[in-house]
Amino acid sequence: MTAGSMDRPAGEVPSDDLAVQARLREAADDLRAHVDERWVEVANVVLSRALTATRPSPPVRAQAPTGPVEIAEQVLVSYLRDSIDQLDDCEVVTIGIDTRPEHGIDGRGEVCTGVLVALAVRYQTVLIPLADRVREVAVSRLAQMLGPVEPAVSVSVVHVHIADVTRGDPKLTTDERSR
């Protein structure tokens, strides 16, 4: 409200106020369209630094030719997602790695006992063959990463859960957006 507006009849919007509001909207529009130069300069550095942060993740035992090694659960999840992502008409929602502690001759460690893959699938996708393909891909990838571990990785430890059905491509949109 500007000085002098008290003298105006109620309900009448003074032209000065309208001009100021229009100016303010123009300024807001200008600011919205503006990208700070400094951001353009530092964006890549900011992103790189953020990506170097480590997510807390328990280790899972693997068997390399040279002996036992441990792989972060997050790494397993990331590689599994990458492999399953190659399949059409489905998108990984979550991946859970089940482990149990085990005492071996070389000490204590967590061994992989199962994997739960939750998927979003496109409406009308035939689910059983898709789930079988997901199991095969997951087992193949796990075997590559964990090596000849005991208990052995097999399709029986990979559980597939259909968590969502989307009308559009689940790789591009969630159910909420596709409605």
Binding site: L51, V77, V92, E176
Partner: peptide, 29 residues
């Protein structure tokens, strides 16, 4: 770039760095 924010966030959560880069590109400014 065609993916929704929700899909990008989901993929980022599963370790997809390209998806996170797109989120930063989209909302960073």
């Amino acid at each position: 770039a065609q993916r929704s924010d929700a899909v990008l966030a989901r993929r980022s959560g599963l370790g997809d760095r390209v998806a996170f880069a797109e989120l930063v590109d989209r909302h960073g400014p």
